[in-house]
Amino acid sequence: MTRLLVIGPPGAGKGTQAERMAAAFGIPAVSTGDMFRANVKGKTALGIQVQEFIDAGKYVPDSVTNAIVGDRLHQADAAAGFLLDGYPRTLDQVQELDRLLEADGTQLDAVVQIVADTDEVVARLLKRAAEQGRADDTAEVIRHRLDVYAEQTAPLIDIYGSRGIVVTVDGLGAVDEVTARILDALAERDIHTV
């Protein structure tokens, strides 16, 4: 069983690397962003609520996010492990995740921190916005999300760092190179692919 978390600023390549890591370890990638986008696309009640936060460049409240993630981690395919992408983002979410994992007698094996230069991140997200027509990825909203990340999410690295489970990897470079760096860093901690 492998339980991983990938963390880093918006645009650092978390989604791409999460998919690759999940495939390498044979576990589901649990992306709050994907779950939120599916609800927005389906115009569910949750999706409408989520869209209002996204349009304002804000994160979805912890109560909503915790409920969605808790439900997802109790689905059958996550019993053998999972890779979290986009959760937890706040101290309250860390506490909720700890509670969920402790109730199952488990814990995270590693937190993969992907780091990337801020200007590179903004350029990546603006390019993605142009390619995908994503209204939520304007320069102003991107910079606001990076500020929110620095304020709320970056301190989580201190928590997980104190537990000795953070693996920091440079997110710049070719996708395959970044994936190799991540898998090598995890192998050094005796966390091996299937």
Rank of each mutant, 00 (worst) to 15 (best):
A56I: 06
A29V: 02
I157G: 02
A174D: 15
T118A: 14
D55F: 01
L4I: 11
R128L: 10
V112F: 04
G70T: 01
G86M: 05
D77N: 13
V111Q: 06
G8V: 08
I182L: 10
G81R: 00
G57A: 11
R143M: 07
R72Y: 07
A103D: 12
P61E: 09
L84H: 01
V141Q: 08
S31L: 04
A80D: 13
S63R: 11
D34A: 14
I191R: 05
P28M: 08
K127Y: 04
I165M: 04
A45G: 05
G42K: 06
T16C: 08
G8S: 09
D109C: 04
E96P: 00
V194I: 13
V50I: 15
A110N: 07
L101G: 00
V6S: 06
V94H: 11
D176Y: 09
E102G: 08
R124K: 10
T153F: 07
V6A: 03
F53H: 15
M1T: 10
T44N: 09
A180S: 14
A45S: 13
I27A: 05
D190V: 03
V141H: 03
V141W: 00
L97S: 02
S63A: 15
S63E: 15
A22E: 02
Y59W: 07
G164C: 11
L146G: 08
A12F: 02
I159K: 10
E131N: 14
H144C: 03
I68G: 00
I142Q: 05
A130G: 12
E177F: 07
A45C: 04
K14E: 06
R143Q: 13
A67Y: 01
P88C: 09
V194T: 12
I142A: 05
L46G: 14
D62A: 11
G70E: 09
G42C: 01
I182R: 04
Y160D: 10
G161Y: 08
G13L: 08
V111K: 04
I54L: 14
P88S: 08
L146C: 07
T65M: 02
L101Y: 01
I48E: 14
A174F: 04
R37M: 09
G33S: 09
T90K: 02
Q107T: 13
Q51H: 07
V121C: 05
T168F: 10
V60A: 11
T168S: 15
D55L: 12
A79T: 13
V94M: 06
A174G: 13
T168L: 09
Q107W: 02
E140D: 15
E19T: 14
F53N: 11
